Amino acid sequence: MFKKYDAYLVGYYGMRNSGDDALMYATAWAAKNILGCSNTKVGLYGDYTRETQSDNQLPLKFTQQFPGQNRLLHYKTAIQSKRIIFGGGSVLHSEHDINLKRQLMSLANQKKSLAVGIGIGPFNSVMAEKSCAKFLDECGYVGVRDHASLAIAQSIAPNANVHKTFDLAPLLLCSKQYKAPTKERKGIALTLCSVAIDAMGNTDQFEEEKRVEQFVQLITKLYAKTGEPITLIEFNGHKKLGDWQINNTIITRLLDKYIPVCIKKYEPNPIILLNQLSGYKAIVSMRLHGAILGYLANTPVLSINYHSKCNGWCDEVGMPENYRIDLLNLNIEKIVSQITLGISTTFQQPSLPINKALKNSLSNWSIQNEQLKFYRNYSTI
């Protein structure tokens, strides 16, 4: 059968989430520049006007006109594609979603399909774990971004073609649009978010209120100690589930404290966002890719870890222990003291150099294309 597209790129793309934007950009860039895909298509939910690095866009729907509309759109594109590429993110955790991915691979070509820079689990059911094992066995190549995901894969699918690789985001540094930071740094940025307790995005209102008060205290003390202006960065611009909710609440609570604090609205271009992050003296991040992009921008990051994926990232780059903050035991004084010390003297550095992170990210693609040794042609310098 004639295949119209070299690859169909599948992820949580177009949902106005900066982390997913970075993964989409990196996946499309690598499909073209490393795999040599000359004609790709990416599935986008809702936001269809953005730059994707892909040749074609499939307009998926936030609100379907009839049940199964998106599934049919997925199926049609999969049939027209030579392979499926699942690019980045925590994408293997629910039975329904994993089974859809398996169906797409079967309609395209399982052994040519890839899942790169992904995280596995935690599973929401026993059936999800069983479906994941089948996915891993069927997918031609799987690159996982952390050791925890590798351990899960080796446990449930020991014969699958799974390799330990890295997150895809460092590939943004290969973009010609990226400019290494040269300007003087100013201010402290925070990337905060609500913590969902289910797949529908519901939250524990009592815990959310408690965290808002803690972050108000944190911002108040940071400004008192450093005199630096504060920016709340909207990493998720979703109209219902976005960071605007917690950011707006914090701003309201700070109105009578005369602290220079502002909100940086959602930026759909991950390269522009990366350049912006290079302008701060420090970042305090709940958002996983807030921590990752801050690291890539060579900006000191303190990671507030609320999920295993955040802990996994800290382990991957060797983040200093004093910069790893447990959300459930949020130590405001520790954060303030570490940032104050870093600004007045110097910040500790992660043990993994950025150029090594880029090489690790490129390994998502070079392991299955060893003859290319592609990563030798790229450097962050």
Results as ranks from 00 to 15, higher is better:
Met1Ala: 08
Phe2Val: 08
Asp6Lys: 07
Ala30Ile: 12
Leu35Thr: 05
Gly36Ile: 05
Asn39Pro: 04
Asp47Arg: 02
Thr52Ser: 11
Asp55Val: 12
Leu58Asp: 02
Gln64Met: 14
Gln64Glu: 15
Phe66Asp: 01
Gln69Cys: 10
Thr77Ser: 11
Leu92Asp: 00
Asn99Cys: 14
Lys101Trp: 07
Ser113Gln: 05
Gly119Gln: 09
Lys130Leu: 15
Glu138Trp: 08
Cys139His: 06
Ala148Cys: 05
Gln154Asn: 15
Leu168Pro: 00
Leu171Glu: 02
Leu172Cys: 02
Leu172Arg: 01
Lys176Gly: 02
Lys179Val: 15
Gly187Asn: 05
Ala196His: 10
Asp204Ser: 09
Phe206Thr: 15
Glu207Ala: 15
Arg211Glu: 06
Val216Cys: 12
Val216Arg: 04
Thr220Asn: 11
Lys221Met: 14
Tyr223Gln: 04
Thr226Ile: 03
Glu228Ser: 02
Ile233Leu: 09
Lys240Gly: 04
Gly242Lys: 10
Asn247Met: 05
Ile251Tyr: 04
Leu254Cys: 12
Tyr258Gly: 11
Ile259Thr: 08
Lys264Trp: 05
Glu267Arg: 01
Leu273Arg: 01
Ser278Ile: 01
Ser278Met: 03
Ala291Gln: 07
Ala291His: 08
Ile292Pro: 08
Gly294Met: 07
Ala297Tyr: 00
Thr299Pro: 07
Pro300Ile: 06
Leu302Ile: 14
Leu302Arg: 03
Ser303Glu: 06
Asn311Val: 11
Cys314Gln: 15
Val317Phe: 12
Met319Lys: 04
Met319Phe: 01
Leu330Tyr: 10
Glu333Phe: 13
Ile335Arg: 11
Ile335Gly: 09
Leu341His: 15
Gly342His: 03
Gln349Tyr: 04
Pro353Cys: 09
Ala357Leu: 07
Gln368His: 08
Thr380Val: 14
